[in-house]
């Protein structure tokens, strides 16, 4: 598996040579690519080895040399179970879903309950657009084999691997559970009005305004040791509504995250013991913005900066990272 930041011509040549690719970049470039074994999604932001950058003349692509066979598709909201059903016996799945799409919203809510989801890695990101074009452009995903694209479906790349290669899928979340109030929700979803704050019924939007909470910090929940974020999209105190970039889940206890003092340093710490440059990682546009990652390196983690990430489930303000490695001799 190799990462590269290339011109559209160079990526086209790789596709024509038969490479299996996961590609991120501007829509105008993705539209020029030939048919082949790839899926793609729109973004204009990237983290490279020397730091974050916004470019419209390059594509970030990851080539999976290890692939024995691949399948691609764009799944509609009603076809998401196909994500699990169409995978190979040994391999992994890469996904891309357009921000704000029906497929993304449905996967975020129903995906975590797909039978067998956690048996095999599902890695990916949420396609976005330049932040100054959110109101004029739609994020899109591409199925390179079919030569199609969509603003509402979920693109999937199923990769079959030899038994001698195993996949490692993990997350780096710089946020930890803070010490403030507990938030819980009787009803889940991307938009809420009421919640329980330390067990008391409360309007969340008004509580945030009254308490002056910093909504650049996500809500964080402890998933058996994994810190899982839900990020704030908008707080409308006048109408008492809060909108999130991922759904809150009933039965889960959240707290506002503890602030991160130095993002860049925290990524360097997180990268210790890992060969970050050999991984494909997706980082969140909110981290890019709030942590001012443009021009700032992140411990060697490289990849697209997107409007959300997948590591089995939809994540916010989290770095998801995928790597392939030889199966250790003792496990063969």
């Amino acid at each position: 598996m190799k990462n590269a930041f290339l011109t559209v011509e160079a990526v086209g040549a790789m596709i024509t040579s038969g490479a299996t690719l996961f590609i991120s970049g501007p829509e105008a470039l993705l539209r020029q690519l030939p048919r082949g074994k790839w899926i793609g999604g729109t973004t204009a932001y990237f983290i490279l080895e020397d730091g974050g950058v916004s470019r419209e003349d390059r594509l970030f692509c990851t080539c999976f040399d290890e692939a024995m066979d691949v399948r691609t598709a764009i799944l509609s909201s009603d076809q998401l179970s196909g994500l699990v059903e169409r995978r190979y016996d040994h391999g992994f799945t890469c996904v891309m879903a357009p921000a704000f799409s029906g497929a993304l919203q449905r996967y975020a809510v129903e995906g975590p309950g797909l039978p067998g989801l956690y048996d095999q890695p599902v890695f990916g990101c949420v396609a976005g657009v330049r932040l100054d074009r959110v109101d004029t452009e739609m994020p899109k995903v591409f199925d390179g084999a079919a030569g199609t694209f969509s603003h509402d479906g979920l693109a999937a790349l199923w990769v079959e691997l030899p038994e001698t290669i195993e996949v490692d899928l993990d997350i780096v979340n710089l946020f930890t559970v803070g010490v403030g109030s507990e938030f819980s929700f009787a009803e889940g979803g991307f938009e809420v009005a009421e919640c329980l704050v330390d067990g008391r019924p409360t309007n969340l939007a008004r509580h945030i305004e009254e308490q002056g909470l910093d909504t650049r910090l996500p809500l964080v929940a402890d998933y058996a040791g994994a810190m899982i974020n839900v990020s704030f999209q908008a707080v409308d105190a006048d109408n008492g509504r809060v909108r999130f970039y991922a759904p809150v889940v009933p039965g889960v206890i959240y707290r506002l995250a503890r602030p991160v003092a130095d993002y860049a340093l925290a990524y360097v710490d997180a990268a210790k013991g890992r060969s970050a440059a050999g991984m494909l990682s997706c980082n969140c546009i909110l981290n890019y913005l709030y942590a001012e990652l443009e021009g700032c390196s992140t411990g060697g983690f490289v990849g697209p900066v997107t409007f959300g990430e997948f590591a089995y489930i939809l994540l916010n303000q989290t770095l998801s990272c995928l790597s392939l490695r030889d199966v250790p001799a003792e496990h063969k």
Partner: peptide, 18 residues
């Protein structure tokens, strides 16, 4: 609450608890 290291296992356990 065992000290689990694998992301998939952590997520599945939480999903089942929910």
């Amino acid at each position: 609450n065992p000290d689990i290291s694998t992301l998939a296992t952590r997520l599945l356990i939480t999903r089942l608890r929910i």
